[in-house]
Design a protein around this nucleic acid. Structure first.
Lengths: 239, 239
DNA sequence: CCTTCCATATAACATATGTGAGTGCAGGCT
DNA sequence: AGCCTGCACTCACATATGTTATATGGAAGG
């Protein structure tokens, strides 16, 4: 079974066999997390990081009044809390949106990698940088796009990210989020999420039945969401 | 003159004299950029990164319709485009908001650091991770707070970040942004920025005259903005 | 088979924020 | 001195999105 992180990194640069072996052996164990359970809690000081192998996860923050904001949706191949290696304290929680399989990588193993494998280190660094690029993109869509455009943009992004790890089926992806969760992601109310989805459906841009979301008209969806994929950095470069 | 980056990193971990020397010698030259000029252009493939020594800068993205979103405000000590070392293509521009002095660090020098100085590498990585943490915080405030709270939060954050590099004067900071620029930062219209500022003033939370912004009541401002500084990672830890 | 529980869907209404236009002031330039 | 120009500030009005409430339907479970 190919490690989806390897898959993702190989899209962005060449990985030597040695580096692949080092990555694999950095994994101390594989853990299963139930849906709706935290993979990592806010405020924790973890001594290991979690690489998502299967399932969907979300980074989130909760306010005093109970309102929640999701700041990232993670798919297989994502290192959901690689940053805790250096940030030490989790300033947010990470939640399993579906049942998840998670590879656990101790921080000591990461430290060893940074000591001994500079190129691999750069690739790990890179993957946190891509997280940052996605955050910036979300900031722009939240700040300057209509709710409809924002939703379209989100769907385009998720599609390409899933495609990069081989989790698309034609024009269809699994989207196991409730409309409430989508609202927490985009900063919208549940009601408005529903309105916006109706609109995208009526326009013939998407179909969403059960967990299966199908993109019916990629070009127009991209246009509505003002989507350009540069920021996902899916190009192969020497890094 | 102490390098403000060294100042910032030393707040988060110990730097050896050797590491400080390596950092200093990585700088190939110092450049001055006029206000309202780009330090780096969107779409560029830079071969060096820029460390802000003096002045304020902003990362921004512009949409087809001319709307602009600022995704980060940078202060002295910030590496405004360290990520371009590994992301290669700039997915946004970086603008000098005031006249800026910028230290230029070639990517080859950064690559050498990653090859030879693992601990320093981790600290550079860390500073991009803090950028990411700030992005996440902005996402939550944009998505889930009122415009007033968002503004209060922004002011609290900027104050602490400036304090970390010794650029505060009592309860006063320099805030050389126009209300329009603030609007582009928070995702608000200029008119609404003005309304919100009036409110914060009327409540006796801040004073803002010319470029000088004074925090009159830190505790209440923090409360209004639901601000907690954990995400800025200003603690000293072994990284 | 019935009940319970969510999630989706709709409706009526409330409001935070955006839009477009205009005023006045202050600093810089000729 | 006079004239721009940019910026802060206001007003009247428009609208996107939030809120509260209710209906519907499917899935899980006894």
């Amino acid at each position: 079974m190919p490690n989806p992180l390897v898959l993702k990194l190989e899209q962005r640069d060449r990985l030597s066999d040695d580096e692949k072996r080092v990555l694999e052996s950095a994994i101390s164990r594989v853990r299963v997390v139930e849906a709706d359970e935290d993979i990592v809690h806010e405020g924790e000081h973890p001594s290991e990081s979690s690489l998502l192998l299967d399932g969907y996860a979300a980074r989130y923050k909760i306010f005093s009044n109970g309102r929640r904001q999701i700041t990232a949706i993670h798919v297989p191949g994502d290192f959901v809390d690689l940053h805790s290696f250096l940030l030490k304290v989790m300033d947010h929680g990470v939640l399993a949106l579906t049942p998840c399989r998670v590879a656990v990588v101790p921080h000591v193993a990461l430290e060893r990698i940074t000591d001994e494998h500079p190129h691999l280190t750069r690739l790990l660094w890179l993957s946190t940088l891509v997280d940052g690029a996605i955050h910036r993109e979300w900031l722009t869509t939240m700040g300057r796009l209509s709710a409809t455009a924002q939703m379209a943009h989100f769907i385009c992004e998720l599609f390409l990210r899933l495609k990069a790890v081989g989790r698309t089926d034609g024009d269809t992806i699994q989207l196991p989020l409730t409309q409430a969760e989508l609202g927490d992601t985009l900063g919208l109310s549940t009601v408005h999420v529903n309105r916006v989805l109706q609109e995208l459906r009526k326009e013939g841009l998407i179909r969403w039945q059960g967990d299966a979301l199908t993109i019916l008209d990629w070009e127009r969806l991209e246009k509505v969401g003002e989507f350009t994929p540069t920021y996902l950095n899916l190009q192969h470069e020497h890094r």
